[in-house]
Amino acid sequence: MQYLVSVIDDKSNPGRTDRRPAISAFNDRLIAEGYWVFAGGLADTDAATVIDNRGEEAVFSDGPFVESKEYLAGVWVWEAPDLDVALELAAEASKVCDRKIEVRPFLGE
């Protein structure tokens, strides 16, 4: 079962910025134990562009699709046998990243 694991930061109360080495070590463990599928940190939400091409022509807008205090700072995709395993890893991830974590399952086929 695959889970999208989102790292949530808070503009008014951001997590520590010195987490990179700890996250690398955590990633190595995820890989070694077979949970790791994908990981990536995201650039600032200011760098986002939203495209809406449902109408006559594509409309581009500068910035994220939703402005909020909390925003997505990075994502993982994990392969885990069940939610308990994913939640246990997520609890560690929250400490390692010093940020909140959301765990959301991908749709089953």
């Binding site: 079962m1 889970y3 046998p81 939610l83 308990d84 959301r104 399952p105 749709l107």
Partner: peptide
Amino acid sequence: KAARIPYRVPSAED
């Protein structure tokens, strides 16, 4: 079902 919450007794530690 969607998040696969397991159907089991938690481990002794939990």
